[in-house]
């Protein structure tokens, strides 16, 4: 069974947070960029169907985490990132989303920013510095990356193996 099928089966079978625990562990274990992109697309679509539920945020987090790791596996990214520049880039992406940028395309564009977030040393609650209005999409994606990173850190994984 591939990763996507596994996650599809577990969504709803566990509490949302347990699901995300398992999903992030699976994302961390996967070394296949294409598989992770599939997971990201599926999670994004699932989130949009559940936009009034808690699982909305957790699925968006999964989408961001999976997409960032997929991008990191595909090609190296800079590990020295300026916090302000990254914040500005994420905010800019959110602005464009608000202006009508299609979500799947925005997630594609997020991939590089997320990979940088994953690979660089930034404050753990970096995403709290992201603005929240009028839509939180990029915030969730960034939070997912940080959750992936936080879990890896707790597990003792060096950042470069993420």
């Amino acid at each position: 069974m591939d990763l996507l099928q596994q996650l599809q089966r577990e969504l709803g079978a566990r509490s949302d947070e347990r699901f995300l625990d398992a999903a992030l562990t699976a994302v961390r274990s996967s070394a296949r960029s294409d598989e992770l992109r599939q997971v990201a697309s599926w999670a994004l679509a699932g989130a949009m169907q559940r936009d009034q539920e808690t699982s909305y945020g957790l699925l968006q987090m999964l989408a961001g985490a999976a997409m960032a790791r997929a991008r990191l596996l595909a090609a190296p990214v800079a590990t020295a990132v300026d916090e302000s520049a990254l914040l500005a880039a994420l905010t800019g992406l959110q602005d464009r989303l608000d202006a009508g940028l299609e979500r799947t395309r925005a997630l594609d564009e997020f991939a590089l920013l997320g990979a940088q977030l994953l690979a660089s040393a930034l404050p753990r609650y970096f995403d709290m510095r992201l603005r929240s209005d009028p839509d939180d999409t990029v915030f969730y994606w960034a939070s997912g990356v940080l959750a992936l990173k936080q879990g890896a850190s707790a597990a003792g994984d060096p950042a470069h193996l993420l």
Binding site: E17, L20, G57, L58, D136, S143, Q150
Partner: peptide, 14 residues
């Protein structure tokens, strides 16, 4: 409240 979900998740992780 929705925005809190990821943060609480990560707080729990920590």
């Amino acid at each position: 409240i929705r925005r809190m979900v990821p943060l609480l998740y990560r707080l729990r992780q920590g």
